[in-house]
Computed example of a mutant assay.
Amino acid sequence: MEKRSIAISLPSTGEEEWNAVREPFMTGWLTQGPKVAAFEKAFAERHQVKHALATTSCTTGLHLILAAMGIGPGDEVLVPAFTWVATANVVLYCGATPVFVDVDPITNNIDPRDVARRITSKTKASIIVHLFGLCADMDALRAVLPAGLPIIEDAACGAGASYKGIPVGGLGDAAAFSFHPRKSITTGEGGMVTTQDAELAATMDKLRNHGAEISEEQRHKGPRPYLLPEFNLLGFNYRMTDLQGAVGLVQLGKLDRFIAERQQWAEYYRDRLADVAWLRMPIFPENGNHAWQAFVVYVDLDKAPMPRNDIMERLQAQGIATRPGTHAVHMLGYYSERFNIKPEDYPGALNCNDNTMAIPLHNRMSAEDYEYVVDALRSIA
């Protein structure tokens, strides 16, 4: 088969998104305004939550949630050890301490058995990551977490996923989503926070706009637009632009189709690679819907013909992009040095760090692309 060039991920955008940004340009309303408000409303309805607030990224969304909850110095927040570094970074932004929890190498998600061992009197919240679009085991986690301890969903990969009929975004006290181009839907950069809690939503709404008591849109459309609002909180500038909101509305309308396509090709990978002894497929949940932000396999080093990185290099030479699933945050230089953590302190995360491999799965791949990836993997012996 002729050599192809297959990206690990590509955003699926086109004429509709291009046309969507015309209105903000024509009206002159470029910063947070009516398009963002419409995107928030539609996102809240799709994920069955009462409140959705757009932000500049999932990272700022997570920070916004922690700040609104009053997390600060002296507090501890539980964080899975295998996740993108931002999940831990936001805890430090608040002056609090991230307490790493090991993960289950079968699911890549936080291990409820290890959660119980990490809770102390200083634990004020837990961040639960739905990694790669697979929901964490919320029932098992609630069984070990103290009653009333806030649960924050890092749903960066989770738009459209669900657990036992409940969409991601409403499984905890608050959630943050990402619209980075590697996610199922994108606004370039951008994020969204969701919650059922009206008071928490009101606080986050103020904090994302410098602490202003009313938004710019409310002020401009109000009876006295010439007066500046009151500022009673120390806030941030975490507002999404209306250009992004316009794109987000179009993308959100395609979310379910995107996920259905990814589900179809995830099943194709599973079936065609089932007899490759050195590859373990990701979990296909029976109690919910996977968002398939990424298709992440596990390379069994006891059976593999070569180390994972060599496999990735070989695939790269054939034009197939791959990535490690993500990284074990406790092994990154800053965290290992600051908190004096050894790689083996979190064996599940270490295992995932060294052996997971994301292969291409996105909505701009053709059937021939998928066949090419399968054939390349099957040829490695």
Score class of each variant (00 low, 15 high):
Met1Cys: 12
Glu2Asn: 12
Lys3Trp: 03
Ala7Asp: 09
Gly14Ala: 11
Gly14Trp: 07
Glu17His: 11
Trp18Cys: 15
Val21Tyr: 04
Arg22Asn: 10
Glu23Thr: 10
Pro24Cys: 00
Met26Phe: 07
Met26Arg: 15
Gln32Asp: 11
Val36Leu: 05
Val36Glu: 07
Phe39Pro: 04
Phe39Asn: 08
Glu40Ala: 04
Ala42Lys: 13
Lys50Gln: 14
Ala52Asp: 09
Ala54Gln: 06
Thr55Ser: 11
Thr56Arg: 02
Cys58Gly: 11
Cys58Lys: 07
Thr59Ala: 14
Thr60Asn: 10
His63Lys: 01
Ile65Cys: 01
Ile65Asn: 00
Ala68Phe: 00
Ala68Asp: 01
Met69Thr: 00
Pro73Asp: 01
Val77Thr: 00
Val79Met: 03
Ala81Phe: 03
Ala81Lys: 00
Phe82Met: 05
Thr83Tyr: 01
Asn89Gly: 13
Asn89Met: 09
Val91Pro: 01
Thr97Gln: 13
Pro98Trp: 05
Phe100Arg: 05
Asp102Tyr: 00
Asn108Ile: 11
Asn108Thr: 14
Ile110Tyr: 02
Arg113Glu: 15
Asp114Thr: 14
Arg117Tyr: 10
Ser121Pro: 01
Ser126Pro: 07
Ile128Asn: 09
Val129Lys: 04
Gly133Ser: 00
Ala136Thr: 05
Asp139Met: 06
Ala140Ile: 13
Arg142Lys: 15
Arg142Trp: 09
Ala147Met: 13
Gly148Asn: 05
Pro150Asp: 01
Ile151Ala: 03
Glu153Asn: 14
Glu153Tyr: 06
Asp154Cys: 12
Gly158Ala: 15
Gly158Ser: 14
Gly160Phe: 12
Gly160Ile: 12
Tyr163Gly: 04
Tyr163Val: 01
Ile166Tyr: 08
Gly169Ala: 10
Ala176Lys: 07
Lys183Ser: 03
Ile185Leu: 06
Glu189Gly: 11
Thr194Pro: 02
Thr195Trp: 06
Gln196Pro: 08
Glu199Ala: 15
Leu200Glu: 03
Ala202Pro: 06
Asn209Phe: 13
Lys221Glu: 12
Gly222Trp: 10
Pro223Ala: 06
Pro223Ile: 07
Arg224Trp: 14
Asn232His: 15
Leu233Cys: 06
Phe236Ala: 07
Asn237Thr: 14
Asn237His: 09
Met240Gln: 14
Leu243Asn: 08
Gly245His: 11
Ala246Phe: 06
Leu249His: 07
Val250His: 04
Lys254Cys: 05
Leu255His: 02
Asp256Thr: 03
Arg262Asp: 09
Gln264Met: 10
Ala266Thr: 08
Pro285Gln: 03
Ala291Gln: 04
Trp292Lys: 00
Gln293Gly: 10
Val299Arg: 05
Asp300Phe: 04
Asp302Gly: 08
Lys303Ile: 09
Ala304His: 08
Met306Trp: 05
Glu313His: 13
Glu313Trp: 08
Leu315Glu: 12
Gln316Gly: 10
Ala317Ile: 01
Ala317Tyr: 06
Gly319Asp: 08
Gly319Cys: 08
Pro324Ser: 02
Gly325His: 04
His327Leu: 14
Val329Leu: 14
Gly333Thr: 06
Lys342Tyr: 01
Pro343Ala: 03
Pro347Glu: 13
Asp354Asn: 12
Asn355Ile: 02
Asn355Arg: 14
Ile359Trp: 07
Ser366Gly: 12
Ala367His: 07
Asp369Ile: 11
Asp369Gln: 03
Tyr370Leu: 08
Asp375Pro: 12
Leu377Thr: 06
Leu377Asn: 05
